Simulated assay, not measured.
Amino acid sequence: MSWLVSSKILPPFFRGEPPRTGMNCNQPVCWRVLVGDEHIGWAVSQAVPGAEGSTELHSRVKLDNVPLARMAPRWMSTVIDNIGPLELDMRSRTTLDSLGNLSVFETNVTVNDLPSAILMKGTVDEGKIRLRLQYGEVVHRLDYPWPEHAQLGGKLTPDAKLLQVYTGRKWQKEVYNPFGGPQGAIEVIEAEVVGEEALLMNGELCNTRKIEFRSTDTTGVSSEDRRRSVVWVDEEGYVVRQEINLMDVLLRFDRESESATAEIAPELLQLDEYATLSPKERAEAAATSH
């Protein structure tokens, strides 16, 4: 339980197989979110023990003064029309069973004072992920094929680590996007480690490997328009930066220090309210897993 691994540990250099992702259980990760040089909010995630040997990954993205009118697809116009800069609060919980396989995920998006502007819930059952999507008062139900041991990532939640990343490596993964509408709620994206790059992070030069994520749908779309995000991973496998193209806005996620994360994460995640187990039960479960 000391590591969250969202796929089975398979031969790490098998071409096309995703790299292992990991998060130290009970250790939060926090990201400063920027548009250009303007700090607009935070993203934070943490894995904790769940019921019956499961693991829960809790994440929250809380943004202020977001130019969402530029970011939102047309189908959301009735929700956000003429309300200017927005506050966006997206809270997610992903549950992995005792074998590390995806079981359930839930996402709740609040825009300004509109509670539950978007609700998304997915349950894995008999080789399918069954989705319930609610946008305002409109509900959609969809089924997607779901391979055993497949990874699921969130469009606005960076991975904490990507292990054994090297130039030229390629893989695919599924990403859920609550802003994608019924047809784009889950998208298969392809990743490629395109090279190495030095970044200035917190005043120090950091050697990284640069990964580009693109849509696998090439129909009438340029290579640039297919790009969904860019990730920079340091030499120890920690994701230090991620840039996400969300409609016409480029969001940048810069990883915070452990000391800053320790102050920010508890207030944002509110695990005592949102985690399945109580603090005492989580501590007991973590202790018995070692």
Rank of each mutant, 00 (worst) to 15 (best):
A150G: 08
Q151P: 12
Q151L: 14
L152F: 11
L152G: 05
G153Q: 08
G153N: 08
G153M: 05
T157I: 11
T157M: 01
T157C: 04
P158K: 12
P158W: 10
D159F: 13
D159R: 12
K161L: 00
L162A: 11
L163C: 10
L163R: 10
L163T: 01
V165N: 07
T167C: 13
T167V: 15
G168P: 05
G168R: 08
K170Y: 06
K170H: 09
K170V: 13
W171M: 07
W171S: 04
K173R: 14
K173W: 01
E174F: 14
E174C: 06
E174M: 12
V175T: 09
P178T: 12
G181T: 00
P182W: 05
P182D: 02
P182S: 05
Q183D: 15
Q183I: 05
G184F: 07
G184C: 06
A185D: 01
I186W: 09
I186V: 15
I186Q: 06
I186D: 05
E187A: 03
V188M: 13
I189E: 01
I189G: 00
E190L: 03
A191N: 13
E192W: 09
V193C: 15
V193N: 07
V194G: 02
V194R: 12
G195C: 04
G195R: 05
E196H: 13
L199P: 08
M201V: 12
N202M: 13
G203C: 08
G203P: 14
E204A: 08
L205I: 15
C206P: 04
N207Q: 15
R209G: 01
K210T: 11
E212Q: 11
R214K: 12
R214E: 00
S215G: 10
S215H: 11
T216L: 08
T218R: 15
T219C: 05
S222G: 13
S222W: 07
S223Y: 04
E224H: 13
E224F: 14
E224I: 10
D225Y: 13
R226N: 06
S229N: 08
S229W: 04
V230K: 01
W232N: 06
V233C: 12
D234Y: 01
E235N: 09
E236K: 14
E236Q: 14
G237R: 07
